[in-house]
Amino acid sequence: MRFSPTRFALRSRSFGIFAAGNLVSQAGEWMTLVALNWAVLEFTGSALYLA
């Protein structure tokens, strides 16, 4: 299939807005995961609690 600009999803305004919102919030979700694992290890010092 040849690339055709009309098939590019970011041309759709709704999708572009949703993708931008998702980018920020999913980055936040990964921040939460890293911070959570870090906090548990720091406060308990236990690999079992981290698992």
Binding site: T6, R7, F8, A9, L10, R11, S12, F15, A19, N22, L23, Q26, A27, G28, E29, W30, M31, T32, L33, V34, A35, W38
Partner: peptide, 24 residues
């Protein structure tokens, strides 16, 4: 545009996976 939307969403997901932990 569905195929493109799935591709863009996948890019967004992977980009956030790079940016999020680095920022954290």
């Amino acid at each position: 545009q569905v195929a493109s939307a799935v591709a863009v969403d996948s890019a967004v997901r992977n980009l956030s996976r790079i940016v999020g932990p680095a920022l954290a």
